[in-house]
């Protein structure tokens, strides 16, 4: 193991970093796009069905195929990888935001409106805080998907821990495969734990389990 770290140590750190930031950018964009969209869709229930249907359909495209489809559009490298991962991150966040917002007791929304909150104030002060646990669950799920799938992005030259794993496969070196896989798993677990902490702090005190 020490021998492995000696030869691949610095590579491991750069690749882990690449994996992390490809995933982080894709997830960040996913959150920025899907959370407001999910909130918006609760105001238009009919459109919501269509949009969530499209997002579900995108989810079924095999990940390798989706990555390959990005090449004609964005070439190779990190950009197409980020775009593909962004598309994958959308559905869980979108669906959970929508469900979380829909599940807020209509009585509370009525009370908020009746007391004179504007639609925006009701969303920010009442609906989003109450939907937060469900929204965060969607974000955490997306984070794990994105980190795992970012491994495949190495196929289109985005770098990341996938490089180690595919090298190992090509050169029949199991230590490279294991050396690439373990950091992916650890990365996913750590990020999930961090997001869990974030979820805890974003959830209103009374709603914490």
């Amino acid at each position: 193991m020490f021998a492995f770290l000696n030869t691949h140590g610095s590579e491991l750190i750069t690749k882990t970093w690449e994996q992390l930031y490809i995933s982080a950018i894709a997830l960040g964009l996913g959150v920025i796009a899907a959370v407001p969209l999910g909130i918006l869709l609760t105001r238009f229930p009919k459109t919501a069905k269509v949009v969530i249907g499209i997002a579900s359909m995108l989810q079924t495209v095999p990940s390798l195929a989706l990555l390959a489809l990005m090449i004609p559009l964005f070439g190779i490298g990190k950009v197409p990888a980020i775009v593909a991962l962004f598309i994958y991150s959308l559905l869980p966040i979108l669906r959970n935001t929508y469900i979380g917002m829909e599940d807020v007791d209509p009585v509370l929304i009525d009370a908020a409106k009746g007391m004179g909150m504007t639609a925006m104030q009701s969303i920010r002060q009442v609906e989003v805080p109450l939907a937060m646990p469900v929204i965060m669950a969607g974000i955490r799920l997306s984070a794990i998907y994105v980190i795992a799938w970012a491994t495949l992005a190495s196929y289109i030259g985005a770098g990341g821990l996938g490089d180690l794993i595919f090298n190992g496969l090509n050169l029949f070196q199991p230590d490279l495969i294991i050396g690439g896989t373990i950091p992916v798993t650890i990365l996913a677990l750590v990020i999930d734990w961090l997001l869990g902490r974030l979820e805890y702090h974003l959830t209103p005190v009374s709603e914490r389990a």
């Binding site: 009585v107 509370l108 009370a111 009746g114 007391m115 004179g116 009442v126 109450l130 009374s206 709603e207």
Partner: peptide, 19 residues
């Protein structure tokens, strides 16, 4: 919105914000 802020509103299910 301004009108509603001038009028108190109490509903059957109480509607206190749980959070």
């Amino acid at each position: 919105v301004k009108l509603r802020r001038q009028i108190g509103y109490v509903i059957q299910n109480i509607g206190l914000m749980p959070h």
